[in-house]
């Protein structure tokens, strides 16, 4: 297993390296950030000065290698726009995104599992059909549109919830998060539900499929024959066995939530890393874009690895080994 982990780490480094080259080169080709950053009425000399102070006058390979050299020491460069270390900018915003992703994951599980199990137990009932149709909507409606609609309904028409932004931050066990204040919870609800819709639908479908499969298996039949109560059969025997695929998928999806909550964050003016990424792309803030994507790659590789390890621990039939070509 150690060999497996080491090999995985090496692969991860290679992926990060290739990715850094692609993104760095891609943003380099797109355009020159100084054209957007520099004041309109600056003269040519001032433009040249800014270009030189950002090192953009040097040839591509020089810029890339000096970036690589620094990156190896953990310095991803300073943001062109803010002139602060790109990594710090991202870490500064990460908690907001993490709490949004966590809240959204909780919503998917807490609502998705019961709904899915229900749909799996009584597949022909009207409720089950409604749930499944709803889950199709959850997959297919664009996040952007749903976000705006939710905002119009709950913030503008009903005025139950605040429309945008992050609420007050509280502290609990040394962790600072807006999930610990009432104001913060009110603010996080709409964006979290918006972000959860896709995963909610996913969990419903996984739970339903799992339940449908499991209820016909012998041990469930045996449990029923033994005279166990319905609730015990469902909560202990069925639920336990459908959890493995759900947990696996959600583990990976969490990475997706953190990395790609871009649309939701933008719509709800949520001060997380997704919004930072949008701004960075709009202003060609290359250090921030590259640092962001490298962090995302590392996140995914790590999550994948953890899921694999957890899987082998949960299910003794799975063994971690290299599959050589």
């Amino acid at each position: 297993m150690t060999v497996f982990i080491i090999r995985r780490m090496m692969q991860a480094l290679l992926v990060v390296f290739v990715m850094s080259f692609l993104v760095f080169g891609g943003v380099f080709v797109v355009g020159d950030p100084t054209e957007i950053l520099v004041a309109d009425d600056a003269d040519q000399a001032e433009r040249q000065r800014v270009i030189e102070s950002m090192g953009l006058d040097r040839p591509f390979y020089e810029q890339y290698f000096s970036f690589l050299g620094k990156a190896l020491q953990g310095d991803m460069g300073d943001s062109f726009v803010f002139d602060e270390p790109a990594l710090l900018l991202i870490l500064d915003r990460l908690p907001a995104t993490l709490e949004l992703a966590t809240a959204s994951l909780l919503i998917s599980v807490v609502f998705g599992l019961p709904l899915g199990v229900w749909a799996g137990l009584k597949p022909d009932s009207i409720t089950a059909r409604t749930i499944m149709t709803g889950s199709i909507l959850g997959f297919s409606l664009p996040t952007f549109w749903v976000g705006i609609m939710m905002m119009l309904l709950f913030a503008v028409v009903l005025q139950w919830l605040p429309s945008t932004g992050r609420g007050d931050v509280g502290e609990f066990l040394g962790i600072h998060s807006s999930l610990f204040t009432w104001d913060g919870l009110q603010h996080v609800l709409l964006p979290a539900v918006n972000l959860a819709l896709f995963n909610l639908s996913l969990v419903i479908r996984l739970a339903r499929a799992g339940t449908r499969e499991v209820v016909h298996q012998d041990y469930v039949k045996f449990a029923r024959a033994k005279g166990l109560s319905d609730s015990r059969v469902i909560f202990v025997h069925v639920l336990k066995n459908i959890m493995i695929p759900v947990v696996t998928v959600l583990g990976l999806e969490f990475g997706g939530l953190v990395a790609f909550s871009v649309v939701t964050e933008f719509v709800f003016a949520w001060p997380g890393i997704g919004q930072l990424l949008i701004m960075a792309i709009g202003q060609l803030d290359r250090p921030v874009i590259v640092a962001y994507l490298m962090i995302v790659v590392l996140l995914f590789v790590t999550l994948n690895l953890l899921v694999d390890i957890a899987y082998s621990l949960l299910d003794p039939r799975v063994r971690l080994r290299d599959i050589k070509a």
């Binding site: 503008v156 005025q159 932004g165 719509v267 003016a269």
Partner: peptide, 18 residues
């Protein structure tokens, strides 16, 4: 000053009284 870059969201925030 709250930063709300997205146009419809900014309008919604005003309509909602936020």
């Amino acid at each position: 000053f709250k930063f709300i870059p997205e146009e419809p969201s900014r309008v919604a925030a005003l309509l909602a009284g936020d």
